[in-house]
């Protein structure tokens, strides 16, 4: 069942940081920053689906946007096919955007309400000049076919479609420029569960068909379990664990991942499960806890966790975790 991924790195994110300045109460105080993404590094292999999970505000969407330079990151490097795209100038970046596409969460907000589907698709192709003008009409019909929309859809406006159909339009739009990598930012979160499954299966089918690589950002673990090859867990702007999906779901190492996984509802009331409950709220990303950022809520925290920030270490094969006590707790 498991897909075989040849380990060719398509995208390498290196120490990515995204800080947003916040208003301070006094002009004499030093400027404060929300450290939305703080020193995040990971690799994305060609043809795989890597999911980023975590609760709201952990920096998963910000990571996606920073990679695409939709918000200019504060620091770090993002290598795409060996090239640091953060160093590209505007023109080079525009050209590269054909390779990197994005699908947003809200299918109502991500399509211009004043453009027909035809205009939406056509514009995408025109900018990147992927298809010659006379062939564009055929290409548009082909795209609609891929995402399961009728040809009549071309002359309609986004508001004439349902949420699921709009998301299909969004996917067709992303495909229009022949991308290599698609960042799906909560791409199914706004949809009904039944529609979610349809869209997820569509994404899987398209991935196979066009050898796409997905960076799948989601807070929904069931969805992540369905679509991913590997999973990366984030907490307060940091990566806490990265592993193959099966490995992560079967034997999570980080206490936070364990808590997160035990929160997945199981549709079986007789099943007794051990639940890891977390107390307290997520601390403020403006002034995150010292040492391990999770120590304030971690049931296993010791003195060392408050002082020293744990590095991301490979504990098992391809299983990285940033926890001082990972080995201990694994037993």
């Amino acid at each position: 069942m498991e897909k075989v991924i040849d380990k060719k790195v398509l995208l390498k994110v290196d120490q990515l940081k995204q800080y947003f300045p916040v208003k301070t109460e006094s002009i004499f105080k030093p400027k404060a920053f929300v450290k939305a993404v703080d020193d995040v590094s990971f690799e994305l292999f060609e043809g795989e689906t890597l999911s980023i999970v975590g609760e709201s505000g952990c920096g998963k969407s910000t990571t996606g946007r920073a990679i695409l330079r939709l918000d200019e990151p504060t620091d770090g490097k993002v290598y795409y096919s060996g090239q640091n795209i953060l160093e590209l100038n505007k023109k080079e970046m525009r050209k590269l955007r054909g390779d990197l596409q994005v699908i947003f969460q809200d299918p109502f907000a991500s399509l211009n309400p004043r453009q027909t589907v035809k205009q939406i698709l056509n514009e995408a192709m025109a900018i990147q000049n992927v298809v010659e003008k006379p062939k564009r009409m055929d290409r548009m019909l082909e795209l609609l076919g891929y995402v399961g929309l009728p040809p009549e859809a071309l002359d309609r406006y986004p508001h004439e479609f349902s949420g699921g159909q709009r998301q299909r339009i969004g996917i067709a739009r992303a495909l229009a420029v022949d991308p290599k990598l698609i960042i799906c930012d909560e791409a199914v979160s706004a949809l009904d569960v039944s529609i979610q499954a349809q869209i997820l299966n569509l994404l899987k089918k398209l991935q196979k068909q066009f050898q796409l690589t997905f960076l799948f950002i989601s807070h929904d673990l069931s969805v992540v379990r369905h679509i991913s090859d590997r999973v990366m867990v984030m907490y307060l702007g940091k990566v806490v664990e990265i592993a193959e999906k099966k490995d992560l779901f079967d034997s999570p190492l980080h206490p936070y991942t364990k808590a997160l996984l035990s929160s997945i509802p199981v549709p079986n009331p007789t099943l007794k499960r051990e639940r890891v409950m977390l107390t307290g709220d997520v601390p403020s990303p403006i002034d995150p806890p010292t040492g391990c950022r999770f120590h304030t809520r971690c049931p296993f925290a010791v003195e060392n966790c408050k002082q020293v920030e744990p590095a991301l270490r490979e504990i098992r094969n391809n299983h990285f975790v940033s926890c001082h006590r990972a080995e201990e707790l694994a037993q």
């Binding site: 590269l96 955007r97 054909g98 947003f104 907000a109 991500s110 995408a124 990147q128 739009r173």
Partner: peptide, 14 residues
């Protein structure tokens, strides 16, 4: 601030 403006940027529109 709407997503479709982000989409337009992501497409590489001027």
């Amino acid at each position: 601030r709407q997503d479709y403006i982000r989409t337009a940027r992501a497409k590489g529109l001027r």
